[in-house]
Design a protein around this nucleic acid. Sequence first.
RNA 1: AGAACUGUAGUGUAAUGGUGAGCACAUUAGUCUUUGACACUAAUAGUCUAAGUUCAAAUCUUAGCAGUUCUACCA
Length: 560
Amino acid sequence: MTEIKKEYKNFIEEIIEEDIANNKHGARIHTRFPPEPNGYLHIGHCKAIWISFGLAAKYGGKTNLRFDDTNPTTEETAYVDSIKKDIKWLGFDWEDREYYASDYFPQLFDFAKKLISKGLAYVDDSTAEEISEQKGSPDKPGKESPFRNRSIDENLDLFQKMKDGVFEDGAKVLRVKLDMNSPNMHMRDPVIYRIKKETHHRTGDEWCIYPMYDFAHGQSDSIEEITHSLCSLEFKHHRPLYNWFIENLEIFPSRQIEFARMNVAYMITSKRKLLKLVQEGLVSSWEDPRMPTLSGMRRRGFPPMALREFCAKTGVAKRDNVIEIELLESVVRQSLNKTTDRVHAVLDPLKVIITNYPEGQEEIMIATNNPEDENSGTREIPFSREVYIEKSDFAEEAPNRKYFRMAPGRNVRLKNGYILHCEDYKKNEAGEITEVHCTYYPDSKSGSDTSGIKAKGTLHWVSAAHAIEAEVRIYDRLFTDPTPTAHEGVDFLDFYNKDSLKVIEKAYLEPSLKSAKDGDQFQFMRTGYFIVDRDSNDDKLVFNRTLTLKDSWGKKQKKS
RNA sequence: AGAACUGUAGUGUAAUGGUGAGCACAUUAGUCUUUGACACUAAUAGUCUAAGUUCAAAUCUUAGCAGUUCUACCA
């Protein structure tokens, strides 16, 4: 029996399939991912990467990685490296096609001269303020620059002098001669070259003029013969310019297609705002596990496969969206459920003494590593007279009939161990419960239970004598509002979640975890998914909580 | 204000003039369970508004309304 799965095509796939059907560019598909190396990649880039790399792969095409490095002020090689690392981690490969817009500076310079020669570009001495004023506003026509009608020869000469460093920063720019009355502001004689006497991360001081985005991006697409240039909606207004350059430069006709950016609730993607979080010390770094950066999510324990699945599930369209974070969490859990071994770990310990278990005796329990994976095998867990359970798994009195954790007079199963009968408990002066006394049913051992006793609740536990200690970092969403940057007159930092990080200095883990290494992931039974943090060393284990397990009991309790 | 784009359950996304408007997450109620997890079953809930074209409209047209984007020598 084969399941008939309808395959839905998004609008870009339809365009591509039509182009293939029409044998456009010989039915070749070539996309590109063009980050500016001025920051870390985040969840938004994740979608863009998935679209450009994923679509090309689907149709047997290729994807270039191209660094859009046309602004020396903000760009650094360190970012280049982190971007490459993140894309690889996500599971995509540009093979040997790693390009830089800065490699095209000579060609771009020639393109500009060609435009000047055709009488389509001019050198303008106006200041930035004057140009801004000339542009006017969308509802009112603009004014032409007084330098607009310089001769071609003069323009050629001045542009060369700009390149030769004759003029200071800001003294002159090169503009395209288009239409100062266009309702599209990008068509009102846009600036395409500016003077910046700064050191570029790759070309050093070789250049002092740099092309603007509009005169670098599309041209780079053409140089690389990109067939489908996929970008987000905010570049839609640039498309007429993009096409105008192709036509007037007579270069390869790449096609720009825009899709809606992906927004995720409780996450922000503004580089400036993300930087502010780092600078104000509200997170430890760009790689803080709470950050929506790829490096943050990696450290948090989100599997790359889950991120890809998330992109697939959120689709590709043109409407603005805010995706609920529950969907992200759902795919992460789904992925981790299949891949992680289950272990016993107690985060908030309460000592249980099994009074009828002989002192000094210990035995080995056998536990399945992962019931979702037949090949995961089993492991041994030591058991003894004193164990730790979770404080929240004990109550002095059961609150209602549906409660089936530990309480005096009740039976409860220790997972992979015995059934316990709770007899008594002790409190200190402050009224805190310090220890619980139980008896165990010797014939109820997991796997060979002949007791016939039923226990509704099953608890995770750790043998007190064998437990190892670890630091556990508990993360929650960074903001208390789903769209912290969308409130007018309110600073997004006002929504910062002060409880987004809680550190448990001393949690107790089963001894098998002693050999866990940086990046290893586990399900701590009944509490969530955890990953070994790189802050761990030989003396100290540190875990990050990736996510909790779904908790329908807790949710119900909270409601009542 | 001008232009462009976009409006489908709570959220995200399908339906390419003819389906009972589908799927996922979320929510609710159950079943199962040595993880109150997983798995499974079911329920709730939707075409922005109005007119028009058509045998037939979520889909085409017009108008309205709402949201987004653009007014950088950033990308």
